[in-house]
């Protein structure tokens, strides 16, 4: 799950970027409104963590631009001003959730997972497909009740596929969800991760759609 962090404070931005990566997110971070607009225009984020006070404008401007472009990417607002009126105006402007500073890193992660879940129309925290059960909060996967150990990238690919069962994910889309900007993408990385997942969870779980990408397959 790929998250954009928009925060001008260097230490907090770095903390969120590293901390959310530890919680299983693929993270990218920017410090200004301008770069946030540019990053969001490029798309492919599953959620945005947005600070309201930015050096070159307000986070609400970023939010407004995003919603004006009919982009429904879930947005979690971070702000130091957490009066009721501030919360109400933030939510009314199209934010999906709101956290006052200082916050708890685990709470940010949990809220982001909840936002991502709701954005694909799911209300339960656990994702199940056939005999596979994925718990985003613990980043754990079970097959028929037995825990399966996955690497961070393998987990990310599986979570992307399972978040929208039936949808076809292209290789590029999966790469976007796996790697932040500064990370080097190996040319056949996605194929390698899919191969490992088939080995660990059964060959039929992930289907290859020739020339398009991958999707969840029938039970094996």
């Amino acid at each position: 799950m790929r998250v954009l962090i928009v925060e001008d404070d260097d230490i907090l931005r770095d903390g969120l970027k590293v901390g959310l990566a530890l919680a299983g997110f693929t993270t990218d971070a920017v410090a200004t409104r301008e770069s946030a607009d540019a990053a969001l225009a490029a798309g492919s984020f599953d959620a945005v963590v947005l600070d309201l006070m930015l050096p070159d404008g307000s986070g609400t401007d970023v939010l407004k631009k995003l919603r004006d472009a009919r982009d429904d990417t879930p947005v979690l607002l971070l702000t130091a001003r957490d009066t009721v009126a501030d919360r109400v105006s933030g939510l009314d402007m199209g934010a999906d959730d709101y956290l006052g500073k200082p916050f708890d890193l685990d709470e940010v992660a949990a809220r982001l997972r909840a936002l991502a879940r709701r954005s694909v129309g799911r209300s339960t925290a656990l994702i199940e497909w056939a005999s596979i059960r994925l718990d985003p909060a613990r980043q754990s996967v079970e097959k028929s009740g037995t825990p399966v150990r996955l690497s961070r990238r393998e987990y990310a690919v599986l979570q992307a596929l399972m978040s929208q069962p039936g949808a076809i994910f292209s290789k590029t889309t999966l790469e976007d969800k796996l790697y932040g900007w500064q990370e080097e993408v190996e040319s056949n990385a996605v194929e390698v991760h899919i191969h490992h997942l088939r080995n660990k969870l059964g060959p039929g779980l992930i289907e290859t759609v020739r020339g398009i990408g991958y999707r969840l397959g029938g039970d094996n």
């Binding site: 903390g15 130091a80 708890d104």
Partner: peptide
């Protein structure tokens, strides 16, 4: 007041987040 709140809470949030990173990693 709004700015002071932002300027004081943001570094606190940063400190807490970094501390949690150090704890979790």
């Amino acid at each position: 007041i709004a700015f002071a709140a932002h300027e004081l809470r943001t570094p606190l949030a940063g400190l807490k987040t970094q501390a949690q990173v150090a704890l979790a990693s």
